[in-house]
């Protein structure tokens, strides 16, 4: 499973520790999710999606189709 967590975190100017604190998890969990070594639980995925104002499928995907999010974000920014 791939995810756009690192991109979203960077766009919001958050460190791993700050994001972890907002989500109530450890920084290691954020790091493991970003590196694709750990797939978050559904409640955590919902929390992440709510925090960044996206749908879960816009952040997490089973294939590299998550690149769509970058395009959508760029369109919003542009």
């Amino acid at each position: 499973m791939t995810n756009e967590l690192r991109v979203l975190r960077a766009r919001h100017g958050l460190s791993q520790a700050e994001l972890a604190e907002k989500l109530g998890v450890s920084r290691q969990t954020i790091n493991a999710i970003e590196t694709g070594r750990y797939d978050p639980s559904l409640p955590l995925a919902f929390k992440i999606a709510a925090l960044f104002g996206h749908r879960i499928e816009e952040i997490f995907s089973v294939e590299d189709g998550a690149r769509k999010l970058e395009g959508r974000l760029e369109r919003r920014a542009g």
């Binding site: 975190r9 460190s15 700050e18 920084r27 290691q28 590196t35």
Partner: peptide, 18 residues
């Protein structure tokens, strides 16, 4: 260090388990 996002963007950053 942890408060600066630019220092924290590496995908391979060590997790520091004790």
């Amino acid at each position: 260090m942890d408060n600066d996002p630019s220092n924290d963007l590496s995908a391979n950053r060590n997790s520091h388990w004790p």
